Simulated assay, not measured.
Amino acid sequence: MTTAPSSPRPLRADARRNRRRVLDAARVAFEEGGNDVQMEDIAKRAGVGVGTIYRHFPTKQALIDELTAEWMADGAAKAADALKEPDPWDGVVLFVRRSAEIMVRNRGLREVFGDVGQLFEDDARVQNHDLQDKVTALLDRAHAAGVLRPDVGVNEFRALMCGLAMAVTNTPPGAHQLYADVILKGLKT
């Protein structure tokens, strides 16, 4: 006779707090140092032992995946804000410019988004359908208004945004605005 697998027990309050401290410290560490950051550095920033990190995230990749999920959720929220813009083109502009601002400050995000093939494949480890849906709606709205090139769909837009992530790496202050402007000029009909 087999028994149904038990559902995981909810974390104790102190374990939840430690997990959040690890994620918050890791987010800052990866924003500054990208994938080169060491787990020991994250533990020190979080004020926990490295064993605490590994109890919550068995590998560094598991921690990166969790941060990627948070970054993508942030992107979905930014796309939702852009959809609130009454003018469809202004919504696209807002989303591209905000994305550029975030990418220039976040090395970890740039490294994740710089790998177009890995992040947006159907079998990617981390996916966010809300982000995909909102960006698609943003582009569809701009297409319907006739302000976005008809040959630019969500796949082309993602590739451009991933290219933007790589372009802003090691650039002089303010260069990200130039790159966003170039992308926007190319997107407009």
Score class of each variant (00 low, 15 high):
residue 17 R to P: 07
residue 124 A to I: 05
residue 177 Q to L: 12
residue 33 G to I: 07
residue 45 R to F: 06
residue 33 G to C: 14
residue 55 R to Q: 12
residue 44 K to G: 03
residue 82 A to P: 10
residue 117 G to C: 02
residue 105 R to A: 15
residue 189 T to V: 07
residue 62 A to K: 09
residue 41 D to Y: 09
residue 141 R to I: 01
residue 161 M to N: 10
residue 136 T to A: 13
residue 32 E to F: 00
residue 136 T to R: 02
residue 118 Q to E: 13
residue 149 R to E: 04
residue 139 L to V: 00
residue 175 A to Y: 13
residue 133 D to Y: 02
residue 46 A to T: 00
residue 32 E to P: 03
residue 2 T to R: 14
residue 160 L to I: 12
residue 138 L to G: 02
residue 94 L to F: 06
residue 96 V to C: 00
residue 186 G to Y: 08
residue 89 W to P: 01
residue 136 T to P: 00
residue 153 G to H: 07
residue 42 I to P: 01
residue 168 V to H: 05
residue 65 D to W: 03
residue 161 M to E: 10
residue 136 T to Y: 06
residue 185 K to F: 12
residue 88 P to K: 01
residue 151 D to P: 04
residue 97 R to E: 14
residue 35 N to R: 14
residue 185 K to H: 14
residue 125 R to F: 11
residue 13 A to R: 08
residue 91 G to T: 00
residue 19 R to H: 09
residue 139 L to T: 01
residue 110 R to W: 00
residue 36 D to V: 10
residue 151 D to V: 05
residue 174 G to W: 01
residue 163 G to L: 04
residue 128 N to G: 07
residue 95 F to P: 05
residue 172 P to L: 10
residue 42 I to K: 04
residue 28 V to A: 15
residue 64 I to C: 11
residue 145 A to R: 00
residue 67 L to W: 03
residue 138 L to W: 12
residue 116 V to R: 14
residue 150 P to W: 04
residue 54 Y to F: 11
residue 140 D to H: 13
residue 19 R to T: 08
residue 4 A to M: 15
residue 79 A to V: 03
residue 131 L to Q: 13
residue 88 P to S: 09
residue 127 Q to P: 03
residue 67 L to R: 03
residue 101 E to T: 14
residue 77 A to D: 15
residue 130 D to L: 10
residue 89 W to I: 08
residue 144 A to V: 09
residue 54 Y to E: 05
residue 143 H to S: 10
residue 18 N to V: 10
residue 20 R to K: 10
residue 52 T to F: 01
residue 99 S to I: 02
residue 145 A to N: 04
residue 183 I to Q: 05
residue 18 N to K: 14
residue 89 W to N: 04
residue 5 P to Y: 03
residue 170 N to A: 14
residue 72 M to N: 08
residue 95 F to W: 07
residue 32 E to W: 00
residue 90 D to A: 15
residue 31 E to I: 02
residue 10 P to F: 06
residue 95 F to R: 00
residue 59 T to Y: 02
residue 148 L to A: 11
residue 25 A to M: 02
residue 56 H to L: 09
residue 27 R to M: 11
residue 164 L to A: 06
residue 44 K to C: 06
residue 35 N to Q: 13
residue 133 D to S: 15
residue 72 M to D: 08
residue 185 K to R: 15
residue 112 V to H: 06
residue 102 I to C: 07
residue 134 K to A: 11
residue 125 R to S: 14
residue 180 A to S: 02
residue 92 V to T: 04
residue 111 E to M: 04
residue 99 S to R: 11
residue 126 V to T: 09
residue 124 A to V: 02
residue 63 L to A: 02
residue 189 T to R: 10
residue 21 R to H: 10
residue 65 D to C: 00
residue 26 A to F: 02
residue 87 D to L: 08
residue 164 L to D: 00
residue 54 Y to I: 06
residue 90 D to H: 06
